[in-house]
Structures are given as structure tokens and as C-alpha cells.
Amino acid sequence: MSATPATDFLRSIGEYPMRQQDLEDRFYGKRLIYVSWENHLMYAAPFCLPLPPTLPFGALVRDVLPELYGEHPEFEAIDWQRTQWFNGGKRFLPDFGKSIEHHGLVHKSLIRLRTPKLEGSRETDSQGRQKF
């Protein structure tokens, strides 16, 4: 077991072993990837998906994202060439032929995608109401 970091202020009356509940090897060969289509708040929260690390990035875009977000009125209009991708806060340029693992998307990474000109809640309708 690795040492408890000095920043852990937890107090206990006895042994308190470090146990991580969500280690990658508990997900049957998959890893958790979170996906957030930024500012599209019709979807209450980002998604949590178990994905094979070998899944090509292109398959994520072609097969997975339409399942997640296909019912949004803006989804059809997405220009995938102009879409901006972030691993957490860090921008990256995807290679659709290479795996999610290749892109540095480790277990529990958060993919955020921004779709220029389709900015959901950043835009307002004719009555000044935030879109979704």
C-alpha cells in the first residue's frame, strides 16, 4: 500500500487503510470516460461511460455521441472538423483513426467538446432566453 499523503487530515481510532473504490481493473476491461458537450444543458449532467481503451476516437464520434446527444436539435448541424476537444481543461487535436487511449484519455478522464456556432446555453433566443 502506498503511503498516506501528508495532506490527509483524517483522524481515526485505529487503522484506516486507503481503499480506492473505482480502480480501472473493476470495469471488465473498460475504463470510465466522462463526456460533456459544453453548454448543452438540455442534458442535465455530463455522461459517464465505460469504454474500451482501444475504441477509435472516430467510433466515439460516429457511434457513441449520436446515441448520447442525437435528440438535441443542434446535434445534426455539428461540424466535426471545427469541433474543439478538451481533455479536462487541456485542448487536443483528435486523430479519428487512433484509440482513446492514444489520446491520453486515462481512466476517469473528462472529454469536453465545444461546437463553435452551436453554443447552446451561451446563446439566447428572440425573447432573450438562454437556449439549452
Binding site: P5, T7, D8, F9, L10, P17, Q20, Q21
Partner: peptide
């Protein structure tokens, strides 16, 4: 961050 050992075991 104050007590990571406690919350790392959360049953989500």
C-alpha cells in the same frame, strides 16, 4: 482533499 482516504471509497 481534506480527507481523501474517506471519500476515495465512496460508493457512487
Amino acid at each position: 482533499e481534506h480527507e481523501p482516504r474517506k471519500y476515495a471509497q465512496a460508493w457512487l
